[in-house]
Simulated scan of single mutants.
Amino acid sequence: MKFFQGKVKEPVPEAEQLAAYRAYGDVAVLGALYEPYMDVVFGVCFQYLRDEDESKDAVMQVFEKLVTDLRQHEVSNFKSWLYSVARNHCLMKLRTARVTAGHEPADDREQELPIEVTTDDDVFELEGRLDALDECLQKLASEQRKSIELFYLQNKCYRDIAGETGFDIGKVKSYIQNGKRKLKICIESNGSY
């Protein structure tokens, strides 16, 4: 008995898909490249936004961003680049929400992290700065990193951070203040600020 011996399509490597999209701008190619990562992007967005609907919207917004960004920039490692784009998109979204809500720092709040948003024209410069910030965050002591993430990314006050981590409230203030200072030094020493 003979079995059907038709050609089985081999999966196209990501590098070839990226090159094809960059050359021809076929959104179907980009969709095929992006689809396997949609769950990962959703997970990253949910980690930062803490809202299912906002995270689903962010998955689509990240895709829309890729439509233009991948035509302009050559990407060698799609997965890690996509993670950075998703993370930075969420950080920008959180920051924008904070600014548009007219959120003034409460009396127990610190000033902003040592990174400034300029204009939409500087998105890739901003992404570089956010990458540097993320790299520098990883260098902090775990107590400082956890306190800073809860304070800035989840907008928790000192009291809530102390309750969640078990740290003394004075220690939380110290971790944030010293961590912020170390972040600034780290970012400046990397020439990214």
Rank of each mutant, 00 (worst) to 15 (best):
P105N: 10
I115C: 02
E52D: 10
L18W: 07
E143H: 07
K184M: 06
Y175Q: 14
F151G: 01
A101L: 07
T118I: 07
D121P: 00
R98L: 14
R22H: 15
T165A: 04
P11I: 00
Q144W: 00
T119C: 04
M38V: 13
V67P: 04
K2S: 08
P114W: 06
D69F: 02
E188C: 04
E16D: 15
M60K: 11
N178C: 03
A132N: 03
R109I: 01
E188A: 11
H89M: 12
R95F: 13
E14C: 00
L49A: 03
G128E: 10
F78M: 08
S192V: 02
E52C: 01
Y158L: 14
V41F: 05
P36I: 03
L133E: 04
A106P: 02
L153A: 00
L82H: 07
E52I: 10
L113I: 05
F3L: 12
E64F: 08
G6D: 13
S76N: 12
Y48D: 03
R145T: 08
S192L: 05
M60I: 15
D131H: 00
P114T: 05
C136Y: 01
G170A: 13
V67T: 11
A28S: 09
F151W: 04
D160C: 06
R181P: 01
K180F: 00
S192T: 01
T68V: 15
G163Y: 06
T96K: 14
S147V: 08
F4H: 06
Q72F: 08
Q72H: 09
L183N: 07
D134E: 11
Q47G: 04
E54D: 11
K173A: 14
A132V: 02
C90V: 12
L66F: 02
A15L: 09
D53S: 10
V29C: 06
E164Y: 05
N190A: 12
F42D: 02
Q5V: 08
K182N: 10
P36G: 04
V85C: 08
D107V: 15
Y37I: 00
E35K: 09
V67R: 15
F63T: 04
G31V: 03
F78Q: 07
L30W: 04
A20K: 10
L183Y: 05
K79H: 10
R109C: 12
E125I: 09
E16N: 12
A58Q: 05
G166H: 04
Q177K: 15
V85A: 13
D121Q: 11
K171D: 09
T68I: 10
F151D: 00
C136G: 03
L82C: 11
K146H: 07
E125R: 04
